[in-house]
Simulated assay, not measured.
Amino acid sequence: MPCLVPAEAGAADFGAAASYTVGSILLDTEELKLALTQECRVWKRAFGAALNRRASADMNHVFSFVDGMTKRLQRPITDLEDVRGAMAALRETLDFVKSLSFYFHRSGGGDWYRRHHRSSGRIFRSTQQTRAVLNDGNAELVDGLTYAWKNLDALVVQNQNTLLKIQPSMKADLLSSVQSFQSNVQTFCSEYNDRGPGVEGLDPADASERLQVFQTEFDQLWRKYITYSGGEELFGLVVNEYPDLQRIKRELSLLAKLYSLYNAVIDNVSGYYDILWADLNIEKVNTELQDFQNRGAIAT
């Protein structure tokens, strides 16, 4: 980083003599030295303000990341969702440290914040020494950043140790839960095929009600599927596939669109009977019916 202090001193020392005589011409250097000194001060203020803004933005970015990761890693780990969250936070922290290590031309992980502390500290101290910017408290925040990072670093180690400790029991619980989940999926798929909303000859109103019931049960199974699949991936196990569950997901999505349109048509058409002929807007009715027709074409 360029040093701001010698610039003004160099300008002040420009031309030791107060004047120079060249033939019949007398050159007075006092005004020139004063102008150069003032120009250097303006340049220092602009350069210092730019340094302050850059260092402040970098520090706020790191502060925001450290604060977010600290909150995530402080959460207790009690189930697979917590394991996934902790693993994701640890991975994001490692990637962030690598990016900052590359930025400061460092190799390795946990030492980057010392370099950031020295770099930001030099910037803020230089701007203060040269009175380039107002005192905005950034210099004091540098120490706070280092303290916050050390706390985060301790949380990282703590979470790593916790994950290693609970891994065997979590893995056993996962295998047991997957077996139970597979049985629940088979039961659900059998009931869906026999009594689901897609059964032929079913009354539309009845099918719409069944759709809501099976959609609710499916959503619960799907959340467990995401959790267990993520757990199998985390522990390096074979990720089980459930093709029937994937098929039902697509069918429920299509049926939801169709019966949503069906219910909208029934509600609108029923409302037409309550409108007096004198108040009937034929153009509006035609527009609504055309809209329903277009939505039906898209859904199918």
Rank of each mutant, 00 (worst) to 15 (best):
A50W: 08
N286I: 04
F124Q: 10
S119M: 09
D67R: 10
T130F: 01
Q220F: 03
R210F: 10
K150M: 07
S120L: 10
E251G: 04
E209K: 15
A205F: 12
A11N: 07
W222S: 04
L164N: 13
N60V: 10
I123F: 07
A7Y: 13
T146F: 10
F235D: 00
E31T: 07
A7I: 15
K171M: 13
T227E: 08
L254N: 11
A55Y: 10
A7D: 13
D219I: 02
G10R: 09
Y113S: 08
R195M: 11
S208W: 04
K249P: 01
V265D: 02
N159I: 01
L276Y: 11
L27N: 05
S99E: 15
W277R: 05
A55F: 11
F214P: 03
L155D: 05
L234C: 01
F104E: 12
V178G: 05
N52W: 06
D203L: 04
L258P: 00
A264D: 15
Q220G: 09
Q246P: 00
G137H: 01
W149S: 05
F96N: 10
F47M: 14
G23T: 08
Q158W: 02
L280C: 12
L32S: 11
P197W: 08
Y147C: 03
K98Q: 13
R250E: 13
D274T: 14
M59R: 14
Q212Y: 07
E30N: 06
A89C: 05
L34H: 11
A49Q: 14
M69P: 00
L51S: 10
V66Q: 01
A9R: 11
G23M: 08
G48F: 07
L245Q: 07
T78E: 15
G236I: 00
D67M: 01
Q182S: 12
L34I: 03
S99D: 13
K98S: 09
A172Y: 09
Q128A: 14
D143L: 06
Y225E: 05
Y228A: 00
A88H: 09
K150V: 07
S270G: 13
P76S: 09
S229H: 00
T21E: 11
L141E: 09
F188A: 06
L255Y: 12
S56G: 12
K224W: 06
G271Q: 08
A50I: 02
T287D: 08
G109H: 12
D153K: 11
T37K: 12
E217N: 14
C40V: 12
S101A: 12
G296A: 15
F188R: 06
H116A: 14
H117W: 06
L100K: 15
N159D: 06
V199I: 15
D28T: 01
A18W: 06
F181C: 05
N159H: 04
L245F: 09
T127H: 02
R223V: 02
D136A: 06
Y259A: 04
K33W: 03
A154R: 06
V22T: 07
Y225P: 00
A207C: 07
R53E: 15
K71M: 06
D67H: 08
E30G: 08
D136L: 04
R53I: 03
R75T: 10
T37M: 14
R223E: 12
D279S: 10
Y147P: 00
L261C: 06
R118A: 14
F96L: 13
A89V: 02
D13Q: 09
